[in-house]
Design a protein around this nucleic acid. Structure first.
Lengths: 249, 249
DNA sequence: TTAATAGTGTCTGTGAGACAATATGCT
DNA sequence: AGCATATTGTCTCACAGACACTATTAA
């Protein structure tokens, strides 16, 4: 409707990172404690503005991942989660944020970065249940990220990204149980992962030190999509986030 | 790492719209023919920049939908599809675009809007097969949108949005066949949609004029998620987009 | 009656979940 | 031997797909 010379409005663009890892049998998310206003002292996702106007979004995500958590994203699963851009989500003014999901095997304790007073791993359960209060709309972003990871586990070989280069089927099962938040039958799980062609391949029939019978070691296969999928039981979030229903954004 | 006063870079933000509808038995997408550079004369998705810096993204999408296609989005299914923001996707410079997916019942012919020489419905098959060449990365956006719609048909009551207020199960089957691009068995389809509780509810046992036995009329039920889902046959894109593999962005 | 479409019932293979049974290490 | 864990096998039920069959209208 406007044919006059008109400059399109420009908005500050940020990336937020949902970094999930497994610590023990708990699915945890990397959070920082904000050192500056707004939301000073509150937990928040790592992230930040683009470094310059031509920076690629994925590049920015990997840069923030390295800066704020000391994680090199080379071998990391990284996926766009969505755009969070309602006016008012940031009290400083209009900020549009692109959320990325990253998943990593057991990681060391993070070190606090530039604008963070602290950085730490926190169980996703404490976030999903509302026990931890987060800045901005970051609770919703984490909720979306965890649900995305749960679905990804069904259809993709994502679970192997949580494991080391060699793992047992029991290790893999622990990953599924931690992310899905429910126990699985070892026998049926065994059958399923074996049937998904290209999911895992046995590595030179080595064993592992245990109390019982040693387990075979596997490594990630070439397939990134699982067929048939590893279906998860019904009632998607029955024990991990069953405290109260979610409000919609 | 920068503690000096520093202004975050700002980028022009746009929305692009994948508007899908059913015309006959063909799934079609709304395209415009660009009147201005870049890509003058090429097909492209409707869309545009934010009107002002505080405009909500969803609001902008609905505004563009009304401006460029004359569609009031009040009763319309509208969903965020993703962010497309690689530097270089727009020859004018850095532009980040948020893509939205909209789905509507049979719509009238569109009228060309401001910066469009023409606006028309085009079969998605012609886009997916590469027969139609699109501006920017819009072919990829449409590919993502169609795939999203196909998945949505499995898990949600989206299909009823393609129909009128009252429809037969045969009508509903035509929707599924058009979006999925493959024929379905009427008997099995009948059983599935009836089993999905809350998907469709019979409306006052009315009938319809046909050549054969009249069909019962239904309306959309209250459930928005289907349980059990209406699963689609294997080989997701076997006939519609089987020409050549996709390049990844 | 015949044609045409709507709707129902039956059969069969596959796969998920429950769980018994066997294998292989350690102490 | 006895225990603990890994791995395999079996059973049953539910469901998807194929398809014969019945029901209801118009001509």
């Amino acid at each position: 409707m406007i044919h006059d010379p008109w400059e399109p409005p420009e908005v500050p663009l940020a990336v937020d990172l949902v970094i999930l890892t497994l610590r023990g049998t708990s699915l945890q998310v990397l959070l920082i404690e904000r050192a500056i206003e707004p939301y000073q002292g509150a937990f928040a996702l790592p992230g930040g503005f683009l470094a310059h106007v031509e920076e690629d979004l994925g590049t920015a995500a990997r840069r923030e991942l390295a800066e704020e958590a000391g994680i090199e994203a080379g071998s990391l699963y990284l996926e766009q989660l969505g755009v969070y851009g309602e006016p008012g989500r940031d009290p400083r003014g209009r900020v549009v944020s692109v959320a990325y999901l990253a998943v990593a095997p057991r990681l060391p304790e993070p070190v606090a970065g530039s604008d963070a007073a602290d950085a730490s791993w926190q169980p996703t359960n404490r976030v999903l249940s509302g026990e931890l209060v987060l800045a901005f709309d970051h609770r919703r972003i984490i909720t979306d990220g965890v649900e995305r990871a749960r679905v990804k586990l069904e259809n993709s070989a994502l679970a192997t990204a949580f494991c080391g280069p060699a793992f047992t089927i029991g290790d893999l099962q622990e990953v599924y149980e931690a992310v899905w938040g429910r126990p699985l039958d070892p026998r049926n799980f065994y059958r399923k992962v074996q049937k998904a062609s290209g999911f895992i391949v046995p590595v030179g029939r080595e064993q592992r030190t245990t109390v019982g019978r040693p387990a075979r070691l596997f490594r990630a296969g070439l397939s990134s999509v699982l067929s048939p999928p590893i279906t998860r039981p019904v009632a998607p979030a029955a024990d991990a986030a069953d405290t109260h229903p979610e409000e919609e954004g």
